[in-house]
């Protein structure tokens, strides 16, 4: 793992992975959407609203997964001071915030017809809203502090401390009485969803993962380039100052 913390080596690896990730994103979304919207059956209780699950559940899983990436990069940044760790965290945060927003909005659109309400302050919904604010806070720290080393450290600490929310979200449906249903896919006794619904869900989950890798590579590239731009700009300014002083 450590050797990929070198930006040059990472960019080489990313260039090899990128076409596969982008291709898989398109193929899996195409297959997943057709399965989700055309071939999967309506639920006998929930009717067509069950199709919201194929967006809502992968978005929620990815919101948690991305935060885990954020916390891991925060830890790597604080412990080993990997040059790429800060960059990876900064690049991942907006993707995670978007996944969380999507999970929240699709959840509201599912909740209104099925529960009769857009929102309740139960443990699952509230902890996911807190996750959204953690993402926003992480991004705000990067924006608010001019010194990049200080900003990176503060953001990394926030990411690591905020990780406590991830198991709380995962187990909130077991620890408290929530309006939100408990897990039906990742269970000790296996999934309780029929294969006709598990397939589109699996395809969409794969699509969301491939999307994450694709967009993360774009964002890491942009961040690394932006850092080199800043370094070169500083160099040019210093050079101009030296020349005018002579």
């Amino acid at each position: 793992m450590h050797k990929f913390a070198n930006p040059t080596r990472f960019l080489k690896l990313a260039a090899a992975v990128f076409p596969w990730a982008a291709g898989l994103t398109i193929a899996l979304f195409a297959a997943g959407l057709v399965m989700a919207l055309v071939f999967s059956p309506d639920d006998y209780q929930q009717g067509s609203t069950v199709r919201i699950m194929y967006l809502h559940v992968p978005a929620a899983w990815m919101a948690l997964f991305t935060y885990t990436v954020l916390a891991a990069s925060g830890a790597a940044s604080l412990i080993w001071k990997h040059p790429l760790a800060d960059v990876a965290g900064k690049a991942a945060a907006p993707i995670g915030a978007m996944f969380t927003a999507l999970a929240l909005v699709t959840g509201m659109l599912w909740g209104e017809p099925m529960w009769g309400t857009w929102w309740v302050w139960d443990a699952r919904l509230t902890s996911v809203l807190v996750l959204f604010f953690l993402y926003l806070g992480y991004m705000a720290v990067w924006d608010a502090i001019d010194n990049r080393a200080t900003a990176g450290k503060a953001a990394a600490i926030l990411a690591v401390v905020g990780f406590i929310n991830v198991p709380i979200i995962k187990f909130s449906v077991d620890w408290w009485n929530t309006l939100h249903q408990p897990a039906s896919v990742f269970r000790m006794d296996g999934p309780t969803i029929d294969a006709s619904m598990l397939w589109p869900l699996g395809l969409m989950f794969g699509a969301f993962n491939a999307y994450f890798v694709t967009v993360l590579i774009w964002r890491i590239r942009a961040e690394l380039q932006a850092r080199r731009v800043r370094a070169l700009e500083d160099l040019l300014v210093r050079q101009t100052e030296r020349e005018s002083a002579v």
């Binding site: 919201i52 967006l55 659109l109």
Partner: peptide, 10 residues
Amino acid sequence: PYVWGSYGIG
């Protein structure tokens, strides 16, 4: 509206 709204926003 709920299903298409979800996919539209997605």
